[in-house]
Computed example of a mutant assay.
Amino acid sequence: MSERIFERKVVKSFTGKKEKQDYIRGHKFKGNEKRVKELTDAGYLEKVDIPKVEAAVPDNNVETADQLKHVGGGYYELPNGERVQGEENAKKALAEAGE
């Protein structure tokens, strides 16, 4: 899994020792969570709560996924051969056909 990148507003100009770049007040700084926290604690970046990421909940509706076939361009083919645009519309149409 890739590391999250955070962007914060510079509130006090500085030269990044690790980044080897000048950051001017009002510009944006991008970095990983550890570096952003370090610079925020030192007073160089605006203080913003860093949100915690919840683990993604997988779609447990495997039966529906097996019945839908993505045919490109945002279209899905239902088991009866009908094509529907949009995954949500396709799932809805599949549910209605199953009733």
Rank of each mutant, 00 (worst) to 15 (best):
E33I: 09
A55L: 11
T40W: 08
V36H: 03
V84D: 01
A55D: 09
L78C: 04
K52P: 04
G73M: 01
L68Y: 03
Y44P: 05
G26T: 04
A55I: 09
K34R: 14
K92P: 00
K18Y: 13
S2L: 12
S2W: 13
T40V: 14
P79G: 03
Q21K: 15
G81K: 05
F29S: 01
E3C: 07
Q21F: 06
E82T: 15
V62M: 06
E19Y: 08
F29E: 03
K69F: 01
V36I: 15
R83Y: 00
E54S: 12
N80Q: 04
E87Q: 11
D22V: 12
E7L: 08
E77W: 04
Q67L: 15
N61M: 01
E19M: 13
T64W: 00
E87Y: 09
N61I: 05
N80I: 05
I24H: 02
L94D: 00
F14Q: 09
D59R: 11
G86R: 06
V48N: 10
D66M: 12
N89K: 12
L78W: 06
R25L: 03
Y75L: 12
K69E: 10
Y75W: 15
K9H: 09
G72H: 03
V84W: 06
L45N: 05
G98D: 14
K69L: 12
G26R: 04
N80K: 08
K28D: 12
E3Q: 14
K18D: 10
T64M: 08
P51G: 07
A93T: 05
V48L: 14
D22N: 10
E3F: 09
I5K: 14
R4C: 11
K9D: 06
G73A: 04
H70F: 15
V57Y: 03
V53A: 11
E99T: 07
G73Q: 02
V57C: 06
K37H: 06
V10M: 04
G98F: 08
G31W: 11
N32I: 11
V11S: 05
V71T: 10
K28M: 14
Q21T: 15
N80R: 02
K12F: 09
T64C: 02
F14N: 06
A42V: 05
E38P: 02
K91D: 00
A55C: 00
H27T: 15
Y76E: 01
V71C: 03
E19H: 11
I24T: 13
E33Q: 13
D41Q: 15
N61V: 01
E3M: 14
P58Q: 07
E82I: 04
K92W: 08
K30Y: 10
N89V: 01
A97S: 13
I24F: 09
E46P: 07
V53Q: 12
V11T: 09
Y76D: 01
E54V: 11
D49A: 14
K30P: 00
R83G: 00
R35V: 11
E46I: 12
K17F: 12
K52C: 00
A55N: 04
E77K: 13
V36M: 05
E3N: 13
A65I: 00
R25S: 04
A90S: 05
N60Y: 09
A93C: 02
R35C: 01
V57T: 13
V10T: 10
P79S: 01
V10F: 07
N60W: 14
H70S: 13
E96Y: 08
I24P: 01
Q21E: 13
T15K: 13
E3A: 10
A56V: 08
A95I: 01
G72D: 06
K37D: 09
T40L: 02
E7D: 09
Q67W: 00
E63N: 07
